Amino acid sequence: MSVEHLEIRQLPFTAPESVSLVTDLLADLGARYNSSGDDTPVDASEFDPPNGAFLVAFLDGEPVGCAGWRSHGTDGEEAELKRMYTAPAGRRKGVARAVLRAVEDSAREAGRKRLILECGVKQPEAIAFYTANGYERIPDFGYYKGYPDVRSFGRTL
């Protein structure tokens, strides 16, 4: 299956499709890290335009991926990527790359010049994906700053 049948929609973080995918993401992270998944404080309103957006990918009408961005810092130039996830049904089909590009475009259109993110060493697929898409290691930041397993990345948009 190709990305020709892929549609990416901006939805509220609280939409049923968003909630379902984020729940699956947190379960995956929880299993990897023997934790709740991600304790970073997230408020659904942080993904409301113009200070953020949440995108859901649909493959043949089924939700298979998501990611959002929220403003980071005080200068209005930086955005943080959050809740990036591709369900098993969407993997190896270009969904993650399409969602990442859509998030980058959304953040850029909102005036952001840089996208940053946190992930961890037990997510080798994510680390490989981000580095393959032009993200470079940056100083750790955010909720998990100082944790030995955290890895932070950034990319100029």
Rank of each mutant, 00 (worst) to 15 (best):
V19N: 05
R92D: 13
P148H: 13
T23S: 15
R108F: 06
D105S: 05
G120M: 02
D43C: 04
K122Q: 15
S45K: 14
T86H: 07
D38A: 11
D28Y: 14
I116D: 06
V121C: 05
A79G: 15
P88C: 11
Y130L: 07
A89N: 01
T23P: 02
R108S: 10
D39R: 14
R91W: 13
S18F: 05
P16C: 01
Y144Q: 03
D24F: 11
D140K: 03
A57V: 10
W69A: 00
R114A: 01
T131L: 11
R101A: 15
P139I: 12
G111Q: 03
E62S: 10
T23H: 15
T131D: 09
F58V: 02
V95D: 08
P63A: 01
G73D: 06
A89H: 06
L26T: 04
G90I: 01
Y143S: 04
P49S: 10
E109M: 04
Y143M: 09
L81T: 02
I116E: 05
F129W: 06
D149K: 00
G76A: 01
L29G: 10
I116P: 07
L81W: 08
G37W: 03
I138C: 10
D105Q: 11
A96S: 14
I127S: 07
L100M: 08
Y130I: 01
V95H: 10
A87T: 07
K122H: 13
D43S: 12
G68A: 09
A27G: 10
Y85G: 02
A126S: 13
T74P: 07
G142H: 00
Y147W: 12
I138L: 11
I116F: 01
S45A: 15
S35R: 09
R97F: 10
S36N: 08
D43E: 15
L81R: 00
D60C: 09
V42H: 13
L26N: 07
A15M: 04
E118Y: 02
G120T: 04
A57D: 00
D39Q: 11
R83K: 14
S45D: 13
C66S: 11
Y135D: 06
Y130E: 13
R97V: 09
G94R: 11
G37I: 05
A89L: 06
